[in-house]
Design a protein around this nucleic acid. Sequence first.
RNA 1: GUCCCAAUAGUUCAACGGAUAGAACGAAGGAAUCCUAAUCCUUUGAUCUAGGUUCAAUUCCUAGUUGGGACACCA
Length: 539
Amino acid sequence: MIKNNIIKALKEITGIEDLSLETPTNLDYGDYSTNLALKDKKIDPNKITEKINSNTSLPITAKVVGKFINFYVKNDVLIDNLIQIDGEFGKTNKASSKKIMFEFAHPNTHKAFHIGHLRNITTGECLSRLHEAIGAMVIRANYQGDVGLHIAKAVYGIQLSGFEDPKDVKKRAEYLGKVYAIGATKFEESNEAKEVVGNINKKIYDKSDAEINKLYETTRKWSLDYFDSIYKRVYTKFDRLYFESETADRGKEIALEAVNKGILVESDGAIIFEGSKYGLHDRVFISGKGVPTYEAKDLGLAELQFKEYQPEKIIHTVGPEQTEYFKVVFKALEYIQPDTKGREVHVPYGWVKLKKGKMSSRTGNVILGEDVLDQAKQEILEKYKIDEKIAEQVAVGAVKYSFLKHGLTQEIAFDLQESISLEGNSGPYIQYAIARCNSILAKLSVVNYQLSKNLKLNNEETAILRSLVKFPEIVENSALNYSPNLLCNYLYDLASKFNTFYAKNRILGLDFRIMLTEKVGMVLKSGFKLLGIESPLKM
RNA sequence: GUCCCAAUAGUUCAACGGAUAGAACGAAGGAAUCCUAAUCCUUUGAUCUAGGUUCAAUUCCUAGUUGGGACACCA
């Protein structure tokens, strides 16, 4: 990467080890710049610039503006880079051979797969792909809650309202959402219901009631089948599906062993970890009834995950409300299984909130993930004359992009009409640019470039070239900072530059412009692939 | 009460301690003999408050205001 070349050259000249480059937002200030001379008054920016410019092997020229040194990538370097762009462009080996587990999605069976889950899975899939692009070995894991109080509430809801089988994957999921709301509402209303649900919960854990077992197994499968259909729809394939039902027993064992070691202690009949001793808060691992909580299950999960895959890190993509929860559990885990220290990471992503009202599975006031996709698709079909398959790709792209373009920790105020935009800074805008590239190239029978030696580039062409060079480092930054929005911003900017170029220049007839078009299409497509979004050939 | 996170145009969001704080939507106007008008071009408009650190603060620190979240047997 050019950036590294510059840093290396600067280090040799100045002897400063710890220096970084900036990328000015205003292209007039160069492709990169440094503030070295501002930080250290003894440094003379003019001397550095002279040395840089006298070294013709460097890919850049330098210029002093004020105290900044700005670097401009040379034209021939930009063009060499353009020629080299192929489908693999953007991939690096920054994280090569590192094994990282990304754990995401985690819907709970018997509950709705809502829009928040959709953001989660979109984010997790994108982070996975970004890390694969920088050379990591990625394991996609999904930890699904198939036991616990919420299941008991749903089962209770069924007992109250009577069992039905709508005989359709989606309708079954809707039915479960409905009975969950019924059970959960009753649970909050009366102590008697709390007692009943508690007993159902215990029965599910110890499998002591044949009738409940059957009901549980049947409805659990309904949920999982439904989730599978969504995973497929958003192009995610998990390497491993973990279930709370498989971590619960072992988790409880681990917690009990930890009591013997003095890591966990008994308090009021429950087994807890005293996080408050570490500036955190106390949490219950085994309830007074002897049932392992989420905390204990996470102990079982961690052991299983490290044993099965030996990942260097496990990235848990989970909402921000669990930030402090994870701190406590990771701390406990650190004492129980010391080699996990520093390897368990919680990457929180902001909530998707409704612009009006509050989302809650309990009250049934949720926006289902699938409904969002369906509505976006419907709107696209009504608005444009395209076939169903492309409408699906555009709809999924619009929804995914609307999540990914936001900073990861930012909450999103969701409004279907506003959020799922088809114009402006949106997925379809970029898809449209890609389709446009394809459409231009399709006019050519043979692609055979004859680039003249003395190309005179106009502003639009130069802007695109300068942008294309940056793709690999954008991918790297997005991956390492867990920031898909950086890649979104970049792709939008590139697509926008291309559209401006397209509007002002005729492409067909000039080999250089045809090549530029082809390569822009490639980069946009590669970038979208990393976001987990398809690029239709035509729109 | 303690702790965590956020606060930027009318709205939804960007911005690596740097240079003139970027977009999109909205509003107003314009672009078709020519490669896709889901496009392009104009115009419009913002850093919660008070201190501090710095050559330089939307960014870091302190306090406050507002909103969200977590704080024992839910996940």
